[in-house]
Simulated scan of single mutants.
Amino acid sequence: MTAITELRLALTGLDTNPEVWTSERLLRRRIKATGTEPTDRIHDAWFRDFTDPDRVWAIEVELSRKFGDGRLLRAMTAALDTAERHGLAGVLYFVRGASLFRAVEDTAARLAHKRGVESLANLEIHDLDTTLTRKGVI
């Protein structure tokens, strides 16, 4: 089972309603239906917040470090910018491993600094395996 599928099960259970969890495949299909080429980053999924159904979050799952020439910074910037353009609440990053978690945190701090804020209110970083374990998926 893929990490994204495991995360979907952890967050939504067996609910397959695309209004609750919209997969990357469905997001791509929506763009294709418009007849345009994707110009935005395609998130791994969109997830409707159970605590506030008016909020939808972009989901990003990072399993390995993006090295070289600011790739992680560009990827995180694109994920946040795309979420903002689509009126989403923000981005939930789920990362695997302590070193990757630190890298994403450090990159988020740099991005916040570039944007002139102390922290990014529209970004949350979570440990993927802790989330999966807490929800009983692994």
Score class of each variant (00 low, 15 high):
T82E: 09
G97V: 13
G97K: 10
R96Q: 15
A75L: 10
L73A: 11
F67D: 09
A58L: 03
I59Q: 00
A79R: 01
L73K: 13
D81P: 00
V91G: 08
T77D: 14
E105S: 15
P53A: 09
G97M: 04
I59T: 02
K66T: 02
A98T: 15
F94L: 09
L88G: 08
A98I: 08
D52A: 12
A83Y: 03
F50H: 11
V56D: 00
R96Y: 03
A83V: 02
P53L: 10
V56W: 01
F67V: 12
D49V: 06
D49N: 10
W46P: 01
L63W: 00
R74S: 12
W57L: 06
G70I: 12
H86P: 00
G87Q: 09
E105T: 12
T51F: 07
P53Y: 04
H86M: 07
R102G: 10
R102H: 14
V91R: 07
E105W: 04
G90H: 04
V61Y: 05
A58D: 04
H86F: 11
R71C: 02
D69A: 13
L100V: 08
F101Q: 11
F50P: 15
V61A: 08
R48Y: 03
I59G: 01
F94I: 05
R55K: 15
R96K: 14
T51A: 13
F101L: 14
G97Y: 08
A103M: 10
M76R: 03
F50C: 03
G87F: 06
T77A: 11
D69P: 06
I59C: 00
R55Y: 06
W57H: 03
G70Y: 02
F94Y: 15
R85S: 11
R55M: 11
K66R: 13
A83C: 04
F94V: 06
G90S: 07
L63R: 13
R85I: 01
Y93H: 15
F50N: 09
T82M: 06
F47I: 02
R65S: 13
A58N: 02
R65H: 12
A103P: 00
R102Q: 14
F47E: 10
M76K: 02
A98F: 07
T51I: 09
M76T: 06
L100M: 09
A89S: 14
L88I: 03
T51R: 15
R102V: 08
E62Y: 05
E60Y: 02
A79S: 14
L88N: 07
I59E: 00
T82P: 06
L88T: 04
A89F: 06
A89V: 07
K66M: 07
W57V: 00
Y93G: 06
L88V: 05
R102Y: 09
R48A: 11
E60F: 02
V56S: 01
L80T: 07
R85T: 08
R71M: 07
T51S: 15
G90K: 07
Y93F: 15
R85P: 05
S64C: 03
F101H: 15
D54S: 15
W57C: 00
L80P: 02
